[in-house]
Design a protein around this nucleic acid. Structure first.
Length: 844
RNA sequence: AGGCACGUAGCUCAGUGGUAGAGCACCGCUCUGACACGGCGGGGGUCGCCGGUUCAAGCCCGGCCGUGCCUACCA
């Protein structure tokens, strides 16, 4: 059998060329492609479709996507059939605004189809940038499974979802007070709200009792809603106001009469204990309005300006009207006092302006009735980390409104609905015709089945963007049965949802709703929730962070392409694996340098191994484990020990535990100790048998291979490139990433107690060298071992390990004599004899 | 206001009952035949504070303080 000619590995670690080689290999070999017919269990991943128009990519994105991908690579190496698609979200306000701005177009002069074409074009550009980053990071996405929430398949799926929910009675249309964004002039869902703390003024305002003209003082932070006042309330047991029961009050300035009612939720201790209820100040007003059938007096319009009911204040913004009304009240003698208070106001997440209520017919998905069911679904899910579950549970418990899915915007997935102009009944699209746009497409029926009218109007509202993205598992599984689309319903439920924590209440919650409503199942078995990569000050990475901090090469510190360019993709990935799942992590370049160091160290360790094993034939029989040298048995045992630890870390999404374990072994045990020891066998052949070298070569060959496997999910480029050069010619597998992940070897578990002695002497000699100011590698005349206090067993071990002791000491001989320095082995003391310094420079 | 997470060496973070850890930074020594993007050694912490349980607590329990996030109708 011919000896294998081992390859030369370039001396310098060159990340860009390594990455280029690997990317080409992965692309050509198609190893990331999902093959439904392959054997094995499926591991499918529902990963966030980013907003392409947002395009502010930073290292935080790289972090969370990488954390998930590390697990995916592991699962692939465990032999699972990986289904890893990538989508892009191009619905919603961000895209609409972006395209409007970029092309400077007037939406009223274009059609949705034309607008959609522009969005698709922008999506294509934006997605290309994302794709380049994902590929650059080594994400093993199957790009043939790509989807875009604007494409026909996704629109079809979203519209099918609507039809199905309509058929099941889960969707309804109603003219209700809805949360309203006065900036973008659209309805919102509860999940689209944010809150903002600010200082406000609490005003005491006098109403007038209808019965006797006495003043009734209420406290309000929203005096501009006084014209909208429809009732006063007090607590039913508040004796101060008991006599008002059944009477009414006159609203100051505006003069209309409102009833005085009671409600348990009124806090008698707040303000005067008397409150006004308006159309509509908050959700509580809406609740009382519904329950007590109060009058309706809308005073704030869809654009946030005061309506005619506000009288002289009509046309003002609510903000302006607030001050103007207070002044008018003061002049008229109704204003009593004002105090400054801290208040929390609800704002629209997208526009940042305080939300108002508006009334318009909207489509809703009924969710309030299934809160307990959703909490049960939450409990069924395998949450990683487990404590993220309460975030969803709290959200579900706090839900107050059904999910409003109507948006009064131009662009998005249309509702597949027309309305009869005669009786206003909705007519739904045919399932077979999806996707449709009712603004442009004709109504599927020629006469209304209810009233016979032939006039129809297509719904011009579009769906909430989450209506589509909440279907990602069903988009992937081709629930809509789009022809030519990969994937089928055997993929649903998927294995794991991967996302960050801030979209638990939206993406995660809505997806649970959809799979439950459509199919009565969970959308996935597991969820993996990542934290955020923060800037150096521990804050969210902002746009200005991405504008500042640019170095002389033009690379921004938080910008992933720049980081990859400077340190390599593996370095950035390694950094990403440093935070425990779900925890935020501050980004520092110096921490990325650690990743770079690891990659370089791996490279050099591999080069070293190749140098030492020259002449090794990987296909020839190797010594059994029992036949190996003690150092070799020890190394293989230590390596074998970490394999289950690493695997269990990955299985439970705790990649950080896995990384730490491999790191400790690789740096300390393998490089610092074992490689240093094993050198001697090759450099001092006269002290060792050929069997000892054969044992070393076999051990180096095998252990490097396992190390590459263990590190493969973290640093896929470096490990792959080394695998290609060293092991592929022997093993024949196209890529390291489709080889089997290292497995625990039940035979390689023998402890090697001799190594405790050798290790103890190694540490002692290193210490003694430092104290004597000697280089660690300088040859010593002798290492002195004092066995006077040693047990017979210890003495025997020392004798047997004499060559190793000499090796780790780099000493010309081992002397048995008295010595003072205590090792960490009981009964064993050592010393060193430096001897003459070798002449370095030639003598004259 | 409630919930969750966090508070461990100058910095970033490990450490789920048994004598305080890593990396970076710092101070020495070392350019030795894988690697100076390296190696060896060292200094540095009353583990936020106060109680409790235990033979034993950074770790468990209670309370407080601080930070971040989530939730919340105090009009």
């Amino acid at each position: 059998m011919a000896t294998l000619i081992l390859p030369e590995i370039p001396k310098d670690y060159d990340a860009p060329s390594i990455e280029a080689r690997c990317r080409a290999l992965w692309e050509e070999s198609g190893i990331h492609r999902y093959d439904p017919d392959a054997p094995g269990e499926v591991f499918s991943v529902d990963t966030p479709p980013p907003y392409v128009s947002a395009a502010h990519l930073h290292v935080g994105h790289a972090m969370s996507y990488t954390q998930a991908e590390i697990i995916i690579r592991y699962q692939r190496m465990k032999g699972r059939k990986v289904f890893y698609p990538m989508g892009f979200d191009d619905n919603g306000l961000p895209t609409e605004r972006y395209v409007e701005k970029t092309y400077n177009i007037n939406k009223r002069l274009t059609t949705r189809a034309a607008f959609r074409a522009l969005c698709l074009e922008e999506t294509r550009k934006g997605a290309a940038q994302y794709e380049e980053l994902w590929r650059g990071l080594g994400l093993s996405v199957d790009w043939t499974l790509r989807y875009s929430t604007i494409d026909d398949h996704c629109r079809r799926t979203a519209q099918k979802s609507f039809l199905d929910l309509f058929g099941k009675g889960r969707v309804y249309r109603s003219n209700e007070p809805v949360l309203w964004d006065v900036h973008y002039e659209t309805a919102l869902a509860q999940a689209d709200l944010d809150s903002m703390a600010r200082k406000g003024k609490l005003h005491d305002i006098a109403f007038t009792a209808q019965a006797d003209g006495s003043p009734l003082v209420i406290s309000t932070t929203r005096p501009e809603l006084i014209p909208a006042c429809v009732a006063l309330y007090h607590h039913p047991e508040d004796e101060r106001y008991a006599h008002l029961k059944g009477t009414s009050a006159i609203v100051p300035l505006f003069g209309h009469e409102v009833p005085i009612l009671t409600d348990e939720t009124v806090d008698p201790a707040f303000g005067t204990g008397l409150m006004m209820v308006c159309t509509f100040g908050d959700g509580e007003d809406v609740r009382k309005w519904k329950r007590d059938k109060l009058a309706t007096r809308l005073v704030i319009g869809p654009d946030g300006k005061m309506l005619p009911l506000a009288g002289q204040f009509a046309g003002m913004t609510a903000e302006l009207a607030r001050n103007a009304i207070v002044s008018a009240l003061a002049e008229a003698g109704f204003h009593r006092k004002s105090i400054t208070v801290e208040q929390n106001v609800s704002i629209a997440e997208r526009s940042g302006v305080p939300v108002e209520f508006n009334m318009a017919p909207q489509w809703f998905i009924r969710v309030l009735d299934i809160k307990p069911q959703m909490l049960a679904r939450s409990a069924e899910l395998n949450w990683n980390p487990a404590w993220m579950k309460v975030r969803l549970d709290h959200w579900i418990e706090g839900l107050k409104y059904d999910w409003n899915i109507s948006r009064q915007r131009f662009y998005g997935v249309p509702f597949p609905v027309w309305y009869c102009q005669g009786c206003n009944e909705p007519v739904l699209a045919d399932a077979a015709s999806l996707p449709v746009d009712p603004v442009e497409d004709p109504c599927p029926v020629s006469a209304c089945p209810h009233c016979g009218s032939a006039e129809f109007r297509g719904e011009s509202d579009v769906m909430d963007t989450w209506m589509t993205s909440s279907l990602s598992p069903l988009i992937n599984a081709n629930w809509a049965e789009t022809p030519g689309r990969k994937g089928d319903m055997s993929l649903h439920p998927m294995t794991v949802r991967v996302q960050a924590f801030e979209i638990i209440r939206t993406w995660l919650f809505y997806t649970l709703i959809k799979s439950d409503a459509h199919l009565g199942t969970l959308p996935w078995k597991d969820v993996m929730i990542s934290g955020w990569g923060l800037n150096e000050n521990g804050k969210k990475i902002s746009k200005s962070d991405l504008e500042k901090y640019t170095d002389k090469d033009g690379y921004n510190r938080y910008e992933p392409f720049g980081v990859i360019h400077k340190f390599g993709a593996d370095a950035l990935r390694y950094w990403a694996a440093g935070s425990h799942l779900g925890h935020d992590m501050r980004f520092n370049e110096k921490d990325v340098k650690d990743g770079r160091k690891l990659a370089v160290k791996l490279w050099n360790a591999a080069r070293f191994v190749l140098m030492q094993i020259e002449g090794f034939d990987p296909e020839a029989p190797r010594p059994t484990f029992a036949e190996r040298q003690p150092e070799d048995r020890w190394l293989l045992t230590e390596l074998n020990k970490i394999v289950p630890v690493v695997s269990e870390g990955f299985e439970s999404y705790n990649y950080a535990v896995s990384r730490e374990s491999v790191d400790r072994f690789f740096w300390a045990t393998f490089c610092d100790d074992y490689l240093e020891m094993v050198k001697h066998r090759f450099w001092k052949p006269e002290l060792y048998t050929e069997e000892a070298r054969v044992s070393a070569r076999a051990t180096l060959w095998e252990s490097l291979r396992v190390i590459l496997g263990l590190y493969a999910p973290f640093v896929p480029f470096t490990t792959e490139d080394l695998y290609q050069a060293i092991y592929r010619p022997v093993e024949g597998t196209v890529s390291l990433h489709v080889t089997r992940f290292p497995e625990f070897d039940a035979e390689r578990t023998a402890e090697v107690p001799e190594m405790l002695v050798v290790g103890g002497i190694l540490r002692a000699v290193r210490q003694l060298r430092t104290e004597a100011r000697l280089s660690q590698t300088r040859a010593l005349e002798a290492v002195v071992v004092d066995l006077s206090a040693a047990s017979p067993e210890l003495t025997e071990v020392v004798q047997a390990m004499k060559a190793s002791i000499q090796a780790v000491s780099r000493a010309a001989e081992v002397r048995f004599d008295t010595a003072a320095y205590a090792t960490d082995v009981a009964g064993l003391t050592v010393g060193i004899v430096a001897g003459e310094l070798p002449e370095k420079t030639p003598t004259a």
